[in-house]
Nucleic acid binder design. Structure first.
Length: 547
RNA sequence: GGCCCUAUGGUCAAGCGGUUAAGACACCGCCCUUUCACGGCGAUAACCCGGGUUCGAGUCCCGGUAGGGUCACCA
Protein backbone atom coordinates (compact mmCIF):
# COMPACT_ATOMS: atom_id res chain seq x y z
CA UNK A 1 0.00 0.00 0.00
CA UNK A 2 1.34 3.37 -1.02
CA UNK A 3 0.48 5.46 1.99
CA UNK A 4 1.93 8.64 0.56
CA UNK A 5 -0.37 8.29 -2.40
CA UNK A 6 -3.32 7.71 -0.11
CA UNK A 7 -2.42 10.76 1.92
CA UNK A 8 -2.28 12.93 -1.16
CA UNK A 9 -5.54 11.54 -2.43
CA UNK A 10 -7.23 12.51 0.78
CA UNK A 11 -5.51 15.80 1.50
CA UNK A 12 -4.16 17.16 -1.77
CA UNK A 13 -4.04 20.72 -0.46
CA UNK A 14 -2.14 20.11 2.71
CA UNK A 15 1.52 20.83 2.02
CA UNK A 16 2.94 21.83 5.37
CA UNK A 17 4.87 19.38 7.47
CA UNK A 18 4.73 18.79 11.17
CA UNK A 19 8.25 20.04 11.61
CA UNK A 20 7.26 23.29 9.97
CA UNK A 21 4.71 23.86 12.71
CA UNK A 22 6.97 22.54 15.42
CA UNK A 23 10.03 24.53 14.53
CA UNK A 24 8.86 27.59 12.71
CA UNK A 25 5.37 28.42 13.85
CA UNK A 26 5.19 27.11 17.38
CA UNK A 27 8.74 26.79 18.68
CA UNK A 28 9.39 25.80 22.27
CA UNK A 29 8.48 28.52 24.67
CA UNK A 30 11.21 30.57 26.18
CA UNK A 31 10.25 30.31 29.82
CA UNK A 32 12.22 29.97 32.96
CA UNK A 33 12.97 26.56 34.35
CA UNK A 34 9.94 24.96 35.92
CA UNK A 35 7.41 27.35 34.44
CA UNK A 36 4.14 25.64 33.80
CA UNK A 37 1.92 26.18 30.81
CA UNK A 38 -1.73 25.41 31.38
CA UNK A 39 -4.87 25.96 29.50
CA UNK A 40 -8.55 26.16 30.09
CA UNK A 41 -10.26 24.54 27.14
CA UNK A 42 -14.00 24.89 27.40
CA UNK A 43 -16.48 24.17 24.70
CA UNK A 44 -18.57 27.24 24.02
CA UNK A 45 -21.89 26.05 25.39
CA UNK A 46 -22.27 29.23 27.36
CA UNK A 47 -22.61 27.60 30.68
CA UNK A 48 -19.92 27.39 33.30
CA UNK A 49 -20.48 25.84 36.63
CA UNK A 50 -18.58 25.70 39.84
CA UNK A 51 -16.79 22.58 38.66
CA UNK A 52 -15.32 24.42 35.70
CA UNK A 53 -14.20 27.20 37.97
CA UNK A 54 -12.66 24.67 40.30
CA UNK A 55 -10.56 23.29 37.46
CA UNK A 56 -9.74 26.73 36.18
CA UNK A 57 -8.25 27.65 39.55
CA UNK A 58 -5.89 24.74 39.31
CA UNK A 59 -4.73 25.86 35.90
CA UNK A 60 -4.38 29.43 36.98
CA UNK A 61 -2.48 28.72 40.18
CA UNK A 62 -0.13 26.29 38.49
CA UNK A 63 0.74 28.77 35.78
CA UNK A 64 0.98 31.93 37.81
CA UNK A 65 2.78 30.36 40.73
CA UNK A 66 5.55 29.27 38.39
CA UNK A 67 5.77 32.35 36.16
CA UNK A 68 4.22 30.29 33.42
CA UNK A 69 1.37 30.84 31.03
CA UNK A 70 -2.35 30.42 31.53
CA UNK A 71 -4.28 30.38 28.30
CA UNK A 72 -7.77 30.07 26.99
CA UNK A 73 -8.48 27.79 24.09
CA UNK A 74 -11.98 27.41 22.75
CA UNK A 75 -12.95 23.89 21.82
CA UNK A 76 -15.56 24.72 19.25
CA UNK A 77 -15.25 21.59 17.15
CA UNK A 78 -18.89 20.70 17.54
CA UNK A 79 -21.07 23.19 15.70
CA UNK A 80 -24.21 21.67 17.12
CA UNK A 81 -23.34 22.75 20.60
CA UNK A 82 -22.13 26.21 19.86
CA UNK A 83 -24.02 28.93 21.69
CA UNK A 84 -23.97 32.56 20.70
CA UNK A 85 -22.10 34.76 23.14
CA UNK A 86 -20.73 31.81 25.03
CA UNK A 87 -17.12 32.87 24.78
CA UNK A 88 -17.96 36.24 26.21
CA UNK A 89 -19.75 34.58 29.10
CA UNK A 90 -16.75 32.40 29.79
CA UNK A 91 -14.26 35.21 29.74
CA UNK A 92 -16.29 37.68 31.77
CA UNK A 93 -17.30 35.06 34.32
CA UNK A 94 -13.75 34.00 34.91
CA UNK A 95 -12.57 37.55 35.04
CA UNK A 96 -15.23 38.20 37.65
CA UNK A 97 -13.55 35.57 39.77
CA UNK A 98 -10.19 37.18 39.12
CA UNK A 99 -8.97 34.51 36.77
CA UNK A 100 -7.09 36.26 34.01
CA UNK A 101 -5.59 34.68 30.96
CA UNK A 102 -2.15 35.51 29.66
CA UNK A 103 -2.95 34.46 26.15
CA UNK A 104 -5.61 32.89 24.02
CA UNK A 105 -9.10 33.64 22.89
CA UNK A 106 -10.56 37.06 23.52
CA UNK A 107 -14.15 38.16 23.14
CA UNK A 108 -13.27 39.52 19.74
CA UNK A 109 -10.17 37.91 18.38
CA UNK A 110 -7.24 36.52 20.24
CA UNK A 111 -3.88 37.27 21.67
CA UNK A 112 -0.69 35.19 21.68
CA UNK A 113 1.84 33.47 19.45
CA UNK A 114 0.48 29.95 19.61
CA UNK A 115 -2.90 30.51 17.99
CA UNK A 116 -5.35 30.26 16.48
CA UNK A 117 -6.97 29.64 19.84
CA UNK A 118 -10.32 28.72 18.39
CA UNK A 119 -10.05 25.12 17.30
CA UNK A 120 -12.38 25.71 14.41
CA UNK A 121 -9.64 27.87 12.91
CA UNK A 122 -6.93 25.25 13.22
CA UNK A 123 -8.25 22.80 10.63
CA UNK A 124 -5.12 22.99 8.52
CA UNK A 125 -2.90 22.09 11.44
CA UNK A 126 -4.92 19.04 12.42
CA UNK A 127 -5.13 17.91 8.83
CA UNK A 128 -1.41 18.20 8.49
CA UNK A 129 -0.85 15.88 11.43
CA UNK A 130 -3.58 13.53 10.21
CA UNK A 131 -1.92 13.42 6.82
CA UNK A 132 1.34 12.52 8.49
CA UNK A 133 -0.33 9.63 10.30
CA UNK A 134 -1.79 8.40 7.04
CA UNK A 135 1.64 8.55 5.45
CA UNK A 136 2.93 6.43 8.27
CA UNK A 137 0.15 3.92 7.74
CA UNK A 138 -1.29 4.84 11.13
CA UNK A 139 -4.53 6.43 9.99
CA UNK A 140 -7.02 5.73 7.27
CA UNK A 141 -10.30 6.93 5.86
CA UNK A 142 -13.51 5.25 6.89
CA UNK A 143 -16.69 5.51 4.86
CA UNK A 144 -19.06 3.85 7.29
CA UNK A 145 -22.46 5.42 7.61
CA UNK A 146 -24.21 5.93 10.89
CA UNK A 147 -26.41 2.95 10.10
CA UNK A 148 -23.47 0.68 9.42
CA UNK A 149 -21.88 1.64 12.70
CA UNK A 150 -25.13 1.02 14.45
CA UNK A 151 -25.34 -2.45 12.89
CA UNK A 152 -21.82 -3.26 13.99
CA UNK A 153 -22.68 -2.26 17.50
CA UNK A 154 -25.77 -4.41 17.59
CA UNK A 155 -23.85 -7.42 16.37
CA UNK A 156 -21.18 -6.86 18.96
CA UNK A 157 -23.76 -6.65 21.67
CA UNK A 158 -25.36 -9.85 20.45
CA UNK A 159 -21.98 -11.57 20.49
CA UNK A 160 -21.19 -10.15 23.88
CA UNK A 161 -17.92 -8.55 22.81
CA UNK A 162 -16.76 -5.00 23.41
CA UNK A 163 -18.38 -2.45 21.20
CA UNK A 164 -16.43 -0.17 18.96
CA UNK A 165 -14.47 0.06 15.76
CA UNK A 166 -11.55 -2.32 16.04
CA UNK A 167 -10.09 -5.57 14.79
CA UNK A 168 -12.32 -7.49 12.41
CA UNK A 169 -15.06 -4.94 12.89
CA UNK A 170 -12.90 -2.20 11.47
CA UNK A 171 -14.29 -2.44 7.98
CA UNK A 172 -12.00 0.02 6.27
CA UNK A 173 -8.86 -0.63 8.25
CA UNK A 174 -7.41 -2.72 5.45
CA UNK A 175 -9.20 -1.25 2.48
CA UNK A 176 -7.12 -1.10 -0.68
CA UNK A 177 -6.30 2.13 -2.33
CA UNK A 178 -8.58 1.18 -5.22
CA UNK A 179 -11.53 0.60 -2.90
CA UNK A 180 -10.90 3.92 -1.29
CA UNK A 181 -10.65 5.61 -4.65
CA UNK A 182 -13.99 4.13 -5.60
CA UNK A 183 -15.73 5.54 -2.54
CA UNK A 184 -14.11 8.87 -3.17
CA UNK A 185 -15.27 8.83 -6.78
CA UNK A 186 -18.79 8.16 -5.56
CA UNK A 187 -18.54 11.40 -3.65
CA UNK A 188 -18.87 9.67 -0.30
CA UNK A 189 -17.72 11.59 2.71
CA UNK A 190 -15.27 10.02 5.11
CA UNK A 191 -13.82 10.34 8.54
CA UNK A 192 -10.19 9.68 9.34
CA UNK A 193 -9.58 6.96 11.89
CA UNK A 194 -6.45 6.30 13.84
CA UNK A 195 -5.03 2.82 13.23
CA UNK A 196 -4.38 1.50 16.69
CA UNK A 197 -1.67 -1.04 17.40
CA UNK A 198 -2.83 -1.73 20.93
CA UNK A 199 -4.45 -4.88 22.23
CA UNK A 200 -7.31 -5.46 24.60
CA UNK A 201 -4.96 -7.20 27.03
CA UNK A 202 -2.09 -4.74 26.85
CA UNK A 203 -1.34 -2.44 29.73
CA UNK A 204 0.96 0.45 30.40
CA UNK A 205 1.78 2.78 33.24
CA UNK A 206 1.61 6.51 33.40
CA UNK A 207 1.98 9.04 36.21
CA UNK A 208 -0.76 11.45 37.06
CA UNK A 209 0.24 14.48 39.10
CA UNK A 210 -2.84 14.19 41.28
CA UNK A 211 -3.47 10.46 41.35
CA UNK A 212 0.01 9.05 41.23
CA UNK A 213 0.97 6.04 39.16
CA UNK A 214 -1.81 4.69 37.03
CA UNK A 215 -1.92 1.29 35.37
CA UNK A 216 -4.21 1.35 32.40
CA UNK A 217 -5.28 -0.74 29.48
CA UNK A 218 -3.99 0.02 26.04
CA UNK A 219 -6.22 1.58 23.49
CA UNK A 220 -7.25 -0.85 20.77
CA UNK A 221 -9.98 1.19 19.10
CA UNK A 222 -9.59 2.87 15.75
CA UNK A 223 -11.10 6.10 16.95
CA UNK A 224 -12.18 8.91 14.70
CA UNK A 225 -9.62 11.69 14.68
CA UNK A 226 -11.05 13.86 11.92
CA UNK A 227 -14.76 14.16 11.32
CA UNK A 228 -16.30 14.36 7.85
CA UNK A 229 -16.01 18.13 7.97
CA UNK A 230 -12.27 17.90 8.49
CA UNK A 231 -12.52 19.13 12.06
CA UNK A 232 -10.92 16.94 14.73
CA UNK A 233 -12.55 15.13 17.59
CA UNK A 234 -11.50 16.09 21.09
CA UNK A 235 -8.95 13.29 21.29
CA UNK A 236 -6.99 14.50 18.33
CA UNK A 237 -7.38 18.18 19.04
CA UNK A 238 -6.12 17.66 22.57
CA UNK A 239 -2.99 15.89 21.40
CA UNK A 240 -2.18 18.28 18.59
CA UNK A 241 -3.00 21.49 20.40
CA UNK A 242 -1.51 20.73 23.75
CA UNK A 243 1.69 19.67 22.08
CA UNK A 244 1.99 22.56 19.68
CA UNK A 245 0.86 25.12 22.21
CA UNK A 246 3.56 23.72 24.44
CA UNK A 247 1.23 22.96 27.29
CA UNK A 248 3.09 21.31 30.14
CA UNK A 249 0.20 20.38 32.45
CA UNK A 250 -3.15 19.15 31.25
CA UNK A 251 -5.70 19.69 33.99
CA UNK A 252 -9.03 18.08 33.27
CA UNK A 253 -11.82 16.20 34.96
CA UNK A 254 -11.55 12.53 35.78
CA UNK A 255 -14.09 11.69 33.09
CA UNK A 256 -11.10 11.76 30.74
CA UNK A 257 -9.34 8.96 32.52
CA UNK A 258 -11.15 6.41 30.43
CA UNK A 259 -9.95 7.90 27.16
CA UNK A 260 -6.42 8.51 28.35
CA UNK A 261 -5.23 5.37 26.50
CA UNK A 262 -6.29 6.92 23.21
CA UNK A 263 -4.38 10.08 23.93
CA UNK A 264 -1.36 8.18 25.09
CA UNK A 265 -1.20 6.09 21.95
CA UNK A 266 -1.63 9.15 19.75
CA UNK A 267 1.20 10.97 21.45
CA UNK A 268 3.49 7.99 21.20
CA UNK A 269 2.63 7.30 17.59
CA UNK A 270 3.26 10.84 16.48
CA UNK A 271 6.48 10.78 18.46
CA UNK A 272 5.64 13.42 21.00
CA UNK A 273 6.02 13.37 24.77
CA UNK A 274 2.87 13.29 26.79
CA UNK A 275 2.18 16.33 28.94
CA UNK A 276 1.82 15.91 32.68
CA UNK A 277 -1.73 14.87 33.29
CA UNK A 278 -3.69 16.15 36.25
CA UNK A 279 -7.07 14.48 36.49
CA UNK A 280 -9.21 16.25 39.03
CA UNK A 281 -12.07 14.73 40.96
CA UNK A 282 -15.53 15.94 40.18
CA UNK A 283 -17.38 18.35 42.31
CA UNK A 284 -20.51 16.50 43.33
CA UNK A 285 -24.03 17.35 44.17
CA UNK A 286 -26.50 15.59 46.41
CA UNK A 287 -29.34 14.16 44.39
CA UNK A 288 -32.03 12.03 45.99
CA UNK A 289 -29.72 10.93 48.72
CA UNK A 290 -26.72 10.07 46.60
CA UNK A 291 -23.83 12.00 45.18
CA UNK A 292 -23.45 12.65 41.50
CA UNK A 293 -21.35 14.71 39.16
CA UNK A 294 -22.44 18.26 38.52
CA UNK A 295 -24.48 18.46 35.40
CA UNK A 296 -24.91 21.43 33.13
CA UNK A 297 -28.47 20.55 32.34
CA UNK A 298 -29.71 19.41 35.70
CA UNK A 299 -27.99 21.84 37.98
CA UNK A 300 -28.48 25.42 36.88
CA UNK A 301 -28.23 26.40 40.53
CA UNK A 302 -24.61 25.38 40.48
CA UNK A 303 -23.86 27.52 37.49
CA UNK A 304 -21.59 30.44 38.12
CA UNK A 305 -24.46 32.70 37.17
CA UNK A 306 -26.32 31.55 40.22
CA UNK A 307 -23.65 32.81 42.58
CA UNK A 308 -23.30 35.99 40.66
CA UNK A 309 -27.05 36.53 40.95
CA UNK A 310 -27.09 36.01 44.67
CA UNK A 311 -24.14 38.33 44.78
CA UNK A 312 -21.48 36.22 46.40
CA UNK A 313 -18.22 38.06 46.37
CA UNK A 314 -15.72 36.44 44.02
CA UNK A 315 -13.09 36.44 46.74
CA UNK A 316 -15.40 34.36 48.92
CA UNK A 317 -16.05 31.82 46.22
CA UNK A 318 -12.34 31.66 45.52
CA UNK A 319 -11.54 31.17 49.18
CA UNK A 320 -14.11 28.40 49.45
CA UNK A 321 -12.91 26.66 46.35
CA UNK A 322 -9.38 26.78 47.65
CA UNK A 323 -10.44 24.95 50.80
CA UNK A 324 -11.67 22.02 48.78
CA UNK A 325 -8.85 22.28 46.29
CA UNK A 326 -6.01 21.88 48.75
CA UNK A 327 -6.49 20.12 52.03
CA UNK A 328 -4.06 22.25 53.97
CA UNK A 329 -5.36 25.59 52.82
CA UNK A 330 -7.60 26.05 55.84
CA UNK A 331 -4.71 25.51 58.20
CA UNK A 332 -2.66 27.99 56.26
CA UNK A 333 -5.51 30.49 56.45
CA UNK A 334 -5.79 30.12 60.20
CA UNK A 335 -2.08 30.74 60.50
CA UNK A 336 -2.19 33.62 58.01
CA UNK A 337 -5.51 35.33 58.49
CA UNK A 338 -4.39 38.43 56.67
CA UNK A 339 -2.35 36.73 53.99
CA UNK A 340 -3.14 37.17 50.36
CA UNK A 341 -4.52 33.98 48.88
CA UNK A 342 -1.78 34.05 46.27
CA UNK A 343 0.83 33.59 48.95
CA UNK A 344 -0.50 30.14 49.66
CA UNK A 345 1.48 27.56 47.78
CA UNK A 346 -0.92 25.38 45.90
CA UNK A 347 0.22 21.86 45.11
CA UNK A 348 -1.31 19.12 43.04
CA UNK A 349 -0.47 16.24 45.29
CA UNK A 350 -2.58 17.69 48.05
CA UNK A 351 -5.66 17.53 45.92
CA UNK A 352 -8.26 14.97 46.82
CA UNK A 353 -8.98 12.06 44.52
CA UNK A 354 -12.56 11.77 45.53
CA UNK A 355 -15.35 14.07 44.56
CA UNK A 356 -16.36 16.72 47.07
CA UNK A 357 -19.90 17.66 47.76
CA UNK A 358 -20.56 21.34 47.39
CA UNK A 359 -21.30 22.76 50.84
CA UNK A 360 -23.30 25.97 50.90
CA UNK A 361 -23.03 26.32 54.68
CA UNK A 362 -19.30 26.37 54.40
CA UNK A 363 -19.36 28.91 51.60
CA UNK A 364 -21.55 31.17 53.71
CA UNK A 365 -19.30 30.83 56.68
CA UNK A 366 -16.23 31.63 54.65
CA UNK A 367 -18.00 34.47 52.95
CA UNK A 368 -18.66 36.16 56.29
CA UNK A 369 -14.98 36.16 57.10
CA UNK A 370 -13.93 37.27 53.67
CA UNK A 371 -16.37 40.16 53.57
CA UNK A 372 -15.26 41.30 56.99
CA UNK A 373 -11.79 41.93 55.59
CA UNK A 374 -13.07 44.00 52.72
CA UNK A 375 -13.44 47.73 53.47
CA UNK A 376 -17.08 48.64 53.78
CA UNK A 377 -16.82 51.26 51.05
CA UNK A 378 -15.80 48.52 48.66
CA UNK A 379 -18.68 46.36 49.76
CA UNK A 380 -20.99 49.26 49.05
CA UNK A 381 -19.63 49.55 45.53
CA UNK A 382 -19.89 45.82 45.07
CA UNK A 383 -23.47 45.85 46.26
CA UNK A 384 -24.31 48.76 44.00
CA UNK A 385 -22.80 47.12 40.96
CA UNK A 386 -24.57 43.92 41.76
CA UNK A 387 -27.89 45.70 42.05
CA UNK A 388 -27.44 47.32 38.65
CA UNK A 389 -27.14 43.86 37.18
CA UNK A 390 -29.50 41.82 39.29
CA UNK A 391 -31.82 44.08 41.26
CA UNK A 392 -32.30 47.32 39.36
CA UNK A 393 -35.22 48.46 41.51
CA UNK A 394 -32.87 49.21 44.39
CA UNK A 395 -30.19 51.08 42.48
CA UNK A 396 -31.67 54.48 43.24
CA UNK A 397 -32.17 53.68 46.87
CA UNK A 398 -28.56 52.66 47.21
CA UNK A 399 -27.24 55.62 45.30
CA UNK A 400 -29.33 58.13 47.21
CA UNK A 401 -28.38 56.70 50.58
CA UNK A 402 -24.72 56.00 50.15
CA UNK A 403 -23.61 57.34 53.51
CA UNK A 404 -26.41 55.64 55.41
CA UNK A 405 -25.87 52.31 53.73
CA UNK A 406 -22.19 52.42 54.52
CA UNK A 407 -22.93 53.24 58.13
CA UNK A 408 -25.55 50.51 58.38
CA UNK A 409 -23.12 47.97 57.01
CA UNK A 410 -20.47 49.17 59.42
CA UNK A 411 -22.38 48.60 62.64
CA UNK A 412 -20.34 46.42 64.92
CA UNK A 413 -17.76 45.80 62.27
CA UNK A 414 -14.85 47.46 63.99
CA UNK A 415 -15.31 46.00 67.44
CA UNK A 416 -12.78 43.69 68.98
CA UNK A 417 -15.13 40.87 68.21
CA UNK A 418 -16.59 42.19 65.01
CA UNK A 419 -20.00 41.22 63.78
CA UNK A 420 -20.04 39.03 60.72
CA UNK A 421 -23.42 39.73 59.30
CA UNK A 422 -22.72 39.97 55.61
CA UNK A 423 -22.63 36.99 53.27
CA UNK A 424 -23.89 37.90 49.80
CA UNK A 425 -25.63 40.85 48.18
CA UNK A 426 -29.14 39.51 48.19
CA UNK A 427 -28.79 38.83 51.89
CA UNK A 428 -26.99 42.10 52.56
CA UNK A 429 -29.79 44.15 51.12
CA UNK A 430 -32.35 42.13 53.02
CA UNK A 431 -30.27 42.79 56.12
CA UNK A 432 -30.57 46.58 55.81
CA UNK A 433 -33.84 46.84 53.92
CA UNK A 434 -35.80 47.94 57.01
CA UNK A 435 -34.03 51.26 56.74
CA UNK A 436 -35.91 52.19 53.59
CA UNK A 437 -39.55 53.10 54.00
CA UNK A 438 -40.43 51.31 50.76
CA UNK A 439 -39.21 48.05 52.23
CA UNK A 440 -40.02 48.61 55.87
CA UNK A 441 -42.81 46.62 57.44
CA UNK A 442 -43.46 45.03 60.78
CA UNK A 443 -42.87 41.35 60.32
CA UNK A 444 -42.20 39.99 63.80
CA UNK A 445 -44.55 39.69 66.74
CA UNK A 446 -44.04 41.22 70.16
CA UNK A 447 -42.76 38.90 72.87
CA UNK A 448 -45.49 36.60 74.17
CA UNK A 449 -45.73 38.39 77.47
CA UNK A 450 -46.52 41.73 75.85
CA UNK A 451 -49.76 42.49 74.04
CA UNK A 452 -50.49 45.34 71.65
CA UNK A 453 -51.85 47.72 74.24
CA UNK A 454 -48.91 47.13 76.55
CA UNK A 455 -46.51 47.68 73.65
CA UNK A 456 -48.12 50.99 72.79
CA UNK A 457 -47.90 52.08 76.39
CA UNK A 458 -44.19 51.27 76.53
CA UNK A 459 -43.50 52.96 73.23
CA UNK A 460 -45.31 56.06 74.36
CA UNK A 461 -43.08 56.23 77.42
CA UNK A 462 -40.06 55.68 75.24
CA UNK A 463 -41.19 58.45 72.94
CA UNK A 464 -41.74 60.81 75.86
CA UNK A 465 -38.21 60.41 77.11
CA UNK A 466 -36.52 60.11 73.74
CA UNK A 467 -33.63 62.44 73.22
CA UNK A 468 -31.78 61.93 69.98
CA UNK A 469 -28.58 63.33 71.36
CA UNK A 470 -28.35 60.88 74.24
CA UNK A 471 -25.25 58.79 74.04
CA UNK A 472 -25.55 55.04 74.04
CA UNK A 473 -25.41 54.54 77.78
CA UNK A 474 -27.76 57.43 78.56
CA UNK A 475 -30.14 55.98 76.04
CA UNK A 476 -30.08 52.52 77.50
CA UNK A 477 -30.36 53.79 81.06
CA UNK A 478 -33.66 55.32 80.06
CA UNK A 479 -34.86 51.99 78.74
CA UNK A 480 -33.90 50.39 82.02
CA UNK A 481 -35.83 53.03 83.86
CA UNK A 482 -38.90 52.51 81.71
CA UNK A 483 -38.57 48.81 82.31
CA UNK A 484 -38.45 48.93 86.05
CA UNK A 485 -41.16 51.59 86.30
CA UNK A 486 -43.50 49.35 84.36
CA UNK A 487 -42.89 46.05 86.08
CA UNK A 488 -40.02 44.69 84.00
CA UNK A 489 -36.68 43.68 85.46
CA UNK A 490 -33.97 46.17 84.55
CA UNK A 491 -31.52 43.29 84.31
CA UNK A 492 -32.29 39.90 82.82
CA UNK A 493 -30.52 38.20 85.69
CA UNK A 494 -32.94 39.67 88.18
CA UNK A 495 -35.76 38.31 86.13
CA UNK A 496 -34.21 34.86 86.01
CA UNK A 497 -33.84 34.80 89.76
CA UNK A 498 -37.41 35.87 90.46
CA UNK A 499 -39.50 35.44 87.36
CA UNK A 500 -42.71 35.77 89.35
CA UNK A 501 -41.91 39.29 90.43
CA UNK A 502 -41.83 40.74 86.92
CA UNK A 503 -43.81 40.91 83.70
CA UNK A 504 -40.58 40.38 81.83
CA UNK A 505 -37.21 42.06 81.56
CA UNK A 506 -35.46 44.87 79.80
CA UNK A 507 -34.83 42.66 76.81
CA UNK A 508 -38.54 42.42 76.20
CA UNK A 509 -38.92 46.16 76.32
CA UNK A 510 -36.01 46.56 73.93
CA UNK A 511 -37.60 44.11 71.60
CA UNK A 512 -40.77 46.16 71.46
CA UNK A 513 -38.74 49.23 70.54
CA UNK A 514 -36.70 47.29 68.03
CA UNK A 515 -39.79 45.97 66.31
CA UNK A 516 -41.29 49.43 66.07
CA UNK A 517 -38.13 50.78 64.50
CA UNK A 518 -36.90 48.00 62.24
CA UNK A 519 -39.90 45.70 62.10
CA UNK A 520 -38.02 42.70 63.39
CA UNK A 521 -37.05 41.26 66.72
CA UNK A 522 -33.51 40.79 65.49
CA UNK A 523 -31.06 43.49 64.48
CA UNK A 524 -27.74 45.04 65.36
CA UNK A 525 -27.56 47.73 67.99
CA UNK A 526 -30.71 49.87 68.01
CA UNK A 527 -29.00 53.03 69.26
CA UNK A 528 -26.64 52.99 66.31
CA UNK A 529 -29.47 52.35 63.91
CA UNK A 530 -31.36 55.31 65.37
CA UNK A 531 -28.36 57.55 64.93
CA UNK A 532 -28.15 56.56 61.29
CA UNK A 533 -31.88 56.97 60.76
CA UNK A 534 -31.95 60.45 62.22
CA UNK A 535 -34.39 61.91 64.69
CA UNK A 536 -37.24 62.47 62.25
CA UNK A 537 -37.44 58.93 61.00
CA UNK A 538 -37.18 57.51 64.51
CA UNK A 539 -40.04 59.60 65.80
CA UNK A 540 -42.10 58.90 62.73
CA UNK A 541 -41.81 55.15 63.10
CA UNK A 542 -42.58 55.25 66.81
CA UNK A 543 -45.65 57.40 66.29
CA UNK A 544 -46.87 55.19 63.51
CA UNK A 545 -47.12 52.26 65.91
CA UNK A 546 -48.54 54.23 68.80
CA UNK A 547 -51.37 55.68 66.77
C1' G B 1 -23.05 -5.11 31.07
C1' G B 2 -17.31 -4.18 29.92
C1' C B 3 -13.49 -1.01 31.57
C1' C B 4 -11.81 2.83 34.92
C1' C B 5 -11.85 5.99 39.43
C1' U B 6 -13.22 6.56 44.56
C1' A B 7 -14.43 4.94 49.77
C1' U B 8 -12.43 8.15 57.56
C1' G B 9 -18.25 11.71 61.63
C1' G B 10 -24.13 15.05 58.38
C1' U B 11 -20.28 17.90 55.00
C1' C B 12 -14.94 19.09 53.69
C1' A B 13 -10.92 16.60 55.42
C1' A B 14 -5.75 15.12 58.33
C1' G B 15 -3.54 10.37 58.60
C1' C B 16 1.69 7.28 54.67
C1' G B 17 2.25 0.14 59.71
C1' G B 18 2.09 1.47 66.52
C1' U B 19 -2.23 8.33 67.40
C1' U B 20 -6.73 8.94 73.41
C1' A B 21 -8.15 8.73 64.90
C1' A B 22 -6.39 16.08 64.07
C1' G B 23 -8.89 20.40 62.32
C1' A B 24 -12.91 23.29 59.80
C1' C B 25 -18.30 23.82 58.67
C1' A B 26 -23.14 22.36 60.28
C1' C B 27 -26.01 20.66 64.54
C1' C B 28 -26.82 20.64 70.08
C1' G B 29 -25.71 22.63 75.14
C1' C B 30 -23.48 26.33 78.34
C1' C B 31 -21.08 31.22 79.10
C1' C B 32 -20.94 36.39 77.47
C1' U B 33 -25.28 39.46 76.32
C1' U B 34 -31.18 44.33 75.80
C1' U B 35 -32.30 40.75 70.47
C1' C B 36 -29.32 38.75 66.90
C1' A B 37 -24.49 38.22 65.43
C1' C B 38 -19.41 37.85 67.17
C1' G B 39 -16.43 35.44 70.75
C1' G B 40 -15.32 31.57 74.54
C1' C B 41 -16.15 26.64 76.52
C1' G B 42 -18.21 21.88 75.92
C1' A B 43 -21.01 17.65 73.79
C1' U B 44 -22.73 14.18 70.00
C1' A B 45 -20.55 12.00 65.74
C1' A B 46 -16.28 8.33 61.52
C1' C B 47 -12.12 4.38 59.49
C1' C B 48 -18.00 0.24 53.90
C1' C B 49 -17.79 -5.38 54.54
C1' G B 50 -14.92 -10.05 54.42
C1' G B 51 -10.43 -12.44 54.07
C1' G B 52 -5.16 -12.28 54.19
C1' U B 53 0.30 -10.13 55.23
C1' U B 54 2.27 -8.49 60.06
C1' C B 55 3.95 -8.91 66.91
C1' G B 56 0.63 -4.93 65.33
C1' A B 57 -3.72 -2.49 59.67
C1' G B 58 -7.85 3.33 58.76
C1' U B 59 -2.95 2.76 56.62
C1' C B 60 -0.27 -2.89 52.57
C1' C B 61 -2.56 -7.18 49.38
C1' C B 62 -6.90 -9.92 47.53
C1' G B 63 -12.07 -10.35 47.06
C1' G B 64 -16.94 -8.27 47.68
C1' U B 65 -20.25 -3.99 48.33
C1' A B 66 -21.59 0.96 47.45
C1' G B 67 -21.06 5.58 44.85
C1' G B 68 -19.17 7.97 40.61
C1' G B 69 -17.28 8.08 35.58
C1' U B 70 -16.92 6.23 30.61
C1' C B 71 -18.15 3.21 26.53
C1' A B 72 -20.25 9.05 19.79
C1' C B 73 -18.26 11.95 13.49
C1' C B 74 -19.92 15.63 22.29
C1' A B 75 -16.38 17.72 24.79
Amino acid sequence: MDYNKLANMLFPNINKTISYYENEVFPKRNLKEGAKVTRLAPSPTGFIHLGNLYGAFVDERLAHQSDGVFMLRIEDTDEKRKVEGAVETIITSLKFFDLNFDEGALIDGENGDYGPYYQSNRAEIYQCVAKYLIEQGRAYPCFCTEEELEDIRREQEAEGVNTGYYGKWAKYRNATIEEIQEHLDNGESFVVRFKSNGTEEGKFEIDDAIRGRLEIHENYQDVVILKTNGIPTYHFAHVVDDHLMRVTHVVRGEEWLSTLPIHYELFKTIGWDTPIYCHTAHLMKMDNGSKRKLSKRKDPELGLGYYMELGYHPAAVREYLMTILNSDFEEWRIANPEGNIEEFEFTLNKMSNSGALFDLDKLNNISKDVLLKIPVEEIYVFLLNWSKEHKPEIVNILENNRESVIKLLSIGRNDNKPRKDLMYCEQIFEFISYFFDEYFSIVDNYPENIDGAEAKKLLQKYLNTYNHSDDQSQWFDKIRTISSENGYAAKPKDYKKNPDMYKGHVGDVSTVIRIALVGRSVSPDVWEIQQIMGKEKVLERLKKVIN
